[in-house]
Each structure stands twice: as structure tokens, then as C-alpha cells.
């Protein structure tokens, strides 16, 4: 099976029912995407397929219908995406387990809505659970990332 992940082609030999998450982590070695609940309830496993957020823990790889982007694909420690920069500057993470999913959802939101209101942010981000309760910092960082991306 051919997959395009972060702009590179990968040939993987897996059961088509395998959730995309395990293909990314165990076959391709991209471990930035996390396993949380396994039933699309928490958002830790969020990646993009054709730029839209999807819960990779529940998405059988056979249903992937476009290019995949993971947290490793939107920026690197040396060249961070605006959302990742805003995350660091606002010191969003506490334990950090959920943050790759949070950042992927925030990036998808900002690609569709460059100037989100508090409510727009809450509606996009409420499918991503943070048990440390960093939601106020998440919201502040999304606003900050939006401002960066607008060049404000």
C-alpha cells in the first residue's frame, strides 16, 4: 500500500484494517502522534489527511484518501510552524501528551479560519482533551499563532 506522509512516499505492507496511527508509529517510525483512547474520543492521535484533521487511532488505513501530514510534517525544532512557536512562547504544555493532537487541530482551524473568535477556537478544540487542563493557554496560543500567521 502506498501512502504519502509529510510529502514522502512510503510503501507499507499492512492489514488494510490497521488504524493509521499504528502504521505511522510502528511501520514508518513517526512517534510524534500519540495513542490516547483508541476510539476517537480524545484527539491525541490527530493528523491531517488532505489538510483536514482526522483521528488516526480509528481510521483504518484502507480509508485514507489523501496525503497525510503528522506533527513532524508541519514543523521541526529548528524550523517551527507558527502554531508550534506560539505553543512554546505561551508555555502551553504541562505533561505534553496531548499537544501534538492539539497543535494539529489548531493548525487545521487556522488554515480554514485565520482570525478565529474564542468560540471558534473552543468549538474546534473541544474534541481534543487535555487532562492537565491547559485550555486557557491553548486558547491564548491559538490567538497568538493566528496573529503570527496574519503577520500582525
Amino acid at each position: 500500500m502506498q501512502l504519502t506522509i509529510n510529502g514522502k512516499n512510503h510503501e507499507v505492507d499492512v492489514d488494510p484494517e490497521t488504524p493509521l496511527l499504528w502504521v505511522l508509529r510502528d511501520e514508518v517510525g513517526l512517534t510524534g502522534t500519540k495513542f490516547g483512547c483508541g476510539i476517537a474520543m480524545c484527539g491525541a492521535c490527530t493528523v491531517h489527511v488532505n489538510g483536514q484533521p482526522r483521528r488516526s487511532c480509528s481510521l483504518p488505513v484502507k480509508l485514507v484518501d489523501g496525503d497525510i501530514t503528522t506533527i513532524e510534517g508541519i514543523g521541526t525544532p529548528d524550523a517551527m510552524n507558527a502554531v508550534q512557536e506560539a505553543w512554546v512562547e505561551n508555555q502551553v504544555a504541562q505533561c505534553g501528551f496531548c499537544q501534538s493532537g492539539q497543535i494539529m487541530t489548531a493548525a487545521a482551524l487556522l488554515s480554514m479560519n485565520p482570525e478565529p473568535s474564542d468560540d471558534d477556537i473552543d468549538r474546534a478544540m473541544s474534541g481534543n482533551i487535555c487532562r492537565c487542563g491547559t485550555y486557557p493557554r491553548i486558547r491564548a496560543a491559538v490567538h497568538a499563532a493566528a496573529a503570527k500567521m496574519r503577520g500582525a
Binding site: A40, T46, Q52, P53, R54, R55, S58, T105, A106, A108, L109, M112, N113, P116, D120, R123, A124, M125, S126, G127
Partner: peptide, 9 residues
């Protein structure tokens, strides 16, 4: 909603 479409899950 943008960022949380039905098809996200």
C-alpha cells in the same frame, strides 16, 4: 465546524 468537522471522527 472548521477544525472539528463531523468527518474528523
Amino acid at each position: 465546524h472548521p477544525g472539528l468537522m463531523c468527518t474528523t471522527c
